[in-house]
Computed example of a mutant assay.
Amino acid sequence: MLARLKGVPKSMIYRIVRKGEVRVNKGRIKPEYKLQNGDRVRIPPVRVAERETRTLSVKLNKISSLPDRILFEDDALLILNKPFGIAVHGGSGVDFGVIEALRALRPEARFLELVHRLDRDTSGVLLIAKKRSALRALHEQLRLKKIQKDYLALVKGHWPSSCKKVQAPLLKNVLQNGGRVVKVSSEGKVSETHFKVEERFEYATLLKASPITGRTHQIRVHTLHSGHPIAFDNRYGDREFDRHLQDTGLNRLFLHAATLCCQHPLGGTLSIEAPLDDQLRHCLQILRKKSPFL
């Protein structure tokens, strides 16, 4: 398939295979199926982005700044402090994302694949594998829940210190435009997030959120379910709370993948911290001035 679909992002190819869109002998097959002599394979139509579009994308500010946001790199891994407002990969109405941009910026790279995902408006630590062996090793750690990921989230109101864990099953619905909406439902998948209060303000709380499972929009929906939505969440947020924060200069989702700890595929423990961007730091500075005794 890779030879037939030149120019198509690998992430898109893997996705159509996972979803069963590739048919063998007119039937659906599992991703692990091995082709046999005589098999007839049908590949669905795939829209291939023009190379000119990719070249133009590289010139965009957030894309061209990616090399400056590298936190760590060696022969096996590349770790970014992903900026907010950019998807990690193309699809769902997005022509390109971080992984396509990196491939365009580094045409000589033989292998670049996302290890995990972040929402478009979430910033912070993002792992990219530079070797297939590294990708397999890290995926195994994710499967066994051996990768520790901690996020910082600014939420509405005073989060109770006694609320240290939220266990609420999450059900994902895909909209016609490709967008995703997640809600708490008994029909959903088991989901668990641990929380710790980092700092309190007059009408907000800064939380450390550590997802145990890795569901879509998990932290955003679990905080909403607890009555404390995240600041400037355009899907699950509270507009009145956002208005309270206007004088801080904040106008983006306050959710940041701050730290990640895992076993390096080549040996040893790897611990990475991604600093907050200027807008998030400025917001906290203003809140501290307004809440000097909390």
Rank of each mutant, 00 (worst) to 15 (best):
A101S: 15
R200I: 03
E192W: 05
P211T: 11
I147K: 08
D150P: 01
A49P: 07
A134H: 06
G7E: 06
R132Y: 13
V190T: 01
D121H: 05
E198N: 04
I286L: 02
P83G: 00
L250I: 07
A258M: 15
A231R: 02
M1R: 11
R215P: 00
V22T: 10
S162W: 10
R40W: 14
A231V: 01
A209W: 06
L255D: 06
G188R: 05
K130T: 04
E192K: 00
S191H: 11
I147Y: 08
A231D: 12
S226E: 05
I79Q: 02
H225L: 01
A129E: 11
T269M: 10
T223V: 12
Y14V: 05
R15I: 00
C262K: 05
A168L: 06
E202I: 07
Q279E: 13
L114A: 07
C262P: 13
K34R: 14
C163P: 00
D278N: 08
R288G: 04
A274P: 11
G179S: 13
T213R: 00
L5V: 03
S191W: 10
Q141V: 02
G97R: 06
L56T: 15
R110P: 12
K145R: 15
K196A: 08
A153C: 12
V17D: 00
R103A: 05
K82T: 08
L175V: 00
L250P: 11
G97W: 11
D150E: 14
R136L: 01
I128Y: 08
G249D: 03
L276E: 14
G124M: 02
D242I: 05
D75Y: 13
A129D: 11
F254T: 05
Q263Y: 03
L80K: 12
L144H: 07
N173D: 01
I147A: 09
D121R: 02
L126D: 04
L260S: 10
V181Q: 14
R288H: 11
I43H: 12
I286C: 01
H244K: 11
K19R: 04
S291T: 15
Q218N: 12
V41Y: 15
A204L: 03
E113Y: 12
L207S: 03
Y33E: 03
D238V: 04
R47P: 09
L102V: 10
L175F: 03
G20I: 07
R23Y: 14
N25D: 11
F84D: 03
L253Q: 12
R132M: 13
Y151R: 01
Q36S: 13
F241N: 03
E50R: 07
E140C: 10
P9A: 09
L276K: 12
D238Q: 00
S210P: 03
R28M: 05
K149L: 07
